[in-house]
């Protein structure tokens, strides 16, 4: 049975870029040029906006949520006549999924890497050697303590 969450609206409205969903009038302009909709059997930005409007949290804020199939191309941002910015609503939903501890496995290591080294890529000796061969300056790490102060208790 479909369960409507009445608290959902206030939660998503409070997320950065989340409130746009309530402007959606279901025209479907976001679908035609959406690469994810073209390649997926279940991804449809219009449907995601409708699910958000209806407060169907159980379909959106889940471990295998369809929102992760978004390719982040921003076509829907440009095509929407209502300025819903569906990609930003989808990112707000991802923020909610992450808060609930349900984001994909690759997210936590990336956050950890940035918080502890300032970089998403682990810098190896091979990388340094290739930079030297090309005559490039040595890589210098950013002051990681600054990043950790900014991130507070989320640093790991």
């Amino acid at each position: 049975m479909v369960k409507v969450s009445f608290a959902f609206k206030s939660t998503i409205d409070a997320m950065i870029g989340g409130a746009g969903h309530s402007l959606c009038f279901q025209c479907g302009a976001c679908v035609g040029d959406c690469p994810a909709a073209q390649y997926s059997t279940r991804f449809n930005p219009r449907q995601i906006m409708l699910d958000a409007v209806l407060g169907l949290a159980d379909r959106l804020v889940t471990e295998d949520s369809v929102v992760w199939e978004c390719t982040n191309c921003d076509n829907c941002f440009d095509h929407c006549p209502q300025d819903v910015r569906p990609v930003e609503v989808i990112l707000a939903l991802k923020n909610m999924i992450h808060q609930a501890g349900l984001s994909p496995k690759n997210v936590a290591p990336l956050l950890h890497s940035v918080a502890t080294t300032g970089c998403t890529v682990a810098v190896s000796e091979l990388i340094n050697r290739r930079r030297r061969e090309l005559g490039l300056p040595e890589l210098v790490r950013p002051p990681v303590d600054e990043l950790q102060k900014l991130l507070g208790d989320k640093k790991s």
Partner: peptide
Amino acid sequence: EGFSCCPDPIYYKAADKLD
């Protein structure tokens, strides 16, 4: 001097937009 990751507009943004 001092730049960190931009940070990543896909997964970093997906985790927490304010961070």
